[in-house]
Structures are given as structure tokens and as C-alpha cells.
Amino acid sequence: MLKFLIRRLVQAAATVLCVLTIAFFLGRASGKPGALLLTDGATAEQIDQLNETLGFNRPLLAQYVDFALGVFRGDFGSSYRNPSIPAIELVAERLPATVSLALTSFVIGVVLALAAALSIHVFRSRKLRALFIWGGSLRQSVPDFFFGVLAVLVFSVVLGALPSLGFTGPASYVLPVMTIATGQFVLYVRLLDSALTEQSSQDYVRTAYARGKSHGAVVATEMLPNALLPVMTMAGLNLAGLLGGAVIVEQVFAWPGVGEVLINAVSQRDFAIVQAGLLVVALMFVVVNIVVDVLYSVLDPRVRLS
């Protein structure tokens, strides 16, 4: 187990280092940011002065080593716009909002899909399958941001029942979570349904029936655990994507998450913040994947942890 964990951690570190390197050179490839950061009236000397202060006049490799060493000390450099504020701080203070929104939506989406897929198979109902998959696909055909706008229109503007913007309390979760969870729903229903369908024709399922086990019990205790294994890997990838990709939904609901900071950074050309954001997302990606791997090896006795 320990060996396995260490190997995964080394792989994870390599992934993060890779993203870090790409992020660094992407930023430097665009040239020195001095000109972009100052007003149009700035003289060449002022620009050069700023580049000097920010360290952009040094050799590229030296900058990279400095940057990489900084990252390992938790120092991602300072915001270009506000040199007094470390970039990582701007991202980190928004991280809890993003993670809690993504996790809540993920859990609710998966639980709904699980209930739907189980009901399809427990009742062996093609009608239920058509209902859930078509319903979910139609929902998926509405872009998340438009669904969010409609949800705001109905529940906040017309009904006045729920808060629409920002975070004012637990009720603020309802609309964005509903938007993300329903958008992801059909993805998980499809995955679970096809995994369960695959399991249903396995020999061990027939053996379980031959023991005299009831259909519901076979679905829940024999098929489901086996079906969850492949779905878990996909769901893990998806959760990682969700952590980085909920930017659009965050924007619709003015959610005080990382997305807002990143979008603002784009309009202000503050690459330092984007860099910190990318690294944080890469870290979360890696963490989720390690968690999935560990879970997988705990659940599947065939996977040896050596």
C-alpha cells in the first residue's frame, strides 16, 4: 500500500511539474508584461523599469528556476496589478467556494443518476431508461449558463423564492447546484446504465440468481459494486474537470469562486494569477485521481497494491 502510494505521489508530482513548466513558458512566451500593465502614456524607461522590478529582464532559465523554487515554498509570485498581494492568496481565498460548489453538485448529480440507473435495472424498464436518458439529454442540450439564467428568471425574478447572485447563505447553493447537477446527470446515468447492463450478463450474476437471490438484491449487492468500479474512474476525471470547469456556472451566479478571479485576471492581463489558478487546478486534479486510485484498490481485491 505504501509503495503504491509513493509511486502515485511521484507520478502526481511529475504531472504538477509538467503543468507548472507549461504555465511558466506560456506566460513568458507572450513577452514582458510591462507594456501591458502601464497606461498608454508610459515611456520606454518606465516600462523597462517595471520589467526590471518584476524580474523579467533576467535570463529565462534563471527566472524558471526561481519560479519553480518559489512554487515549492508555496510562493507563486505576486499579482502583476497588485504587487503587494501574492497571486496564490487571491486564488486560495476563493478556493473553498469553488470546491464546495463543485463537490455538492457532483455528489447530488451522482446520487440522482445512481437512483435513476438503479430504478431502470431493478424494474427492468425500458420506459424508465428512455425517460431518464432522453430527459437528461434534453437538459444537456440547454447550455448550462442559459439553464442558469432561466433558473434565475423563474426562481428569483418571477417567484422571488431563491437568491440569484453571490453567496448569501445556504439557499444560494440551490440554483447553481441544480444547474451543474442536472447538466451532469445524463452523463452518469449513461455510464452507470451501460456498466450495469454489461454486468447483468455476467456469469456471476446468473450464479447469484441460481442461489435463489431476488432480482433487487442481485442488482444492489452483486451488479452495482462491479458496475461502480469503471464508473468511478470516469467520475473522478469528471470531478477534476468540474473543479476547473465550473467557471461558466460560477460566472452566471456571480459565485465568489476561483472562476471570477480568473476571468477578471483575463481582462486585466494578470497572468500571475492565472498561473497560480492553473497550478491549483492541476493539484486538485492530481489529488482527485489519487483518491480514485486508492478507492479503486480498496474496493477491488484483484488490484494488488505492491
Partner: peptide
């Protein structure tokens, strides 16, 4: 339900491939 009481109780069945006939988990 009545059939379930027959399977495994009155009729027992052994299948061809023991590698796949048991739940791996």
C-alpha cells in the same frame, strides 16, 4: 418469488466456467 424458493433449494446448478461464475468482489 415462488421460483426463487426453487432455485438453490430444490434445484442446484453448476456452471461451466468457474473463473467467471463467482462475484470477483
Amino acid at each position: 418469488n415462488e421460483l426463487r424458493a426453487v432455485r438453490g433449494r430444490e434445484i442446484g446448478m453448476i456452471f461451466q466456467d468457474p473463473m467467471t461464475s463467482m462475484n470477483p468482489l
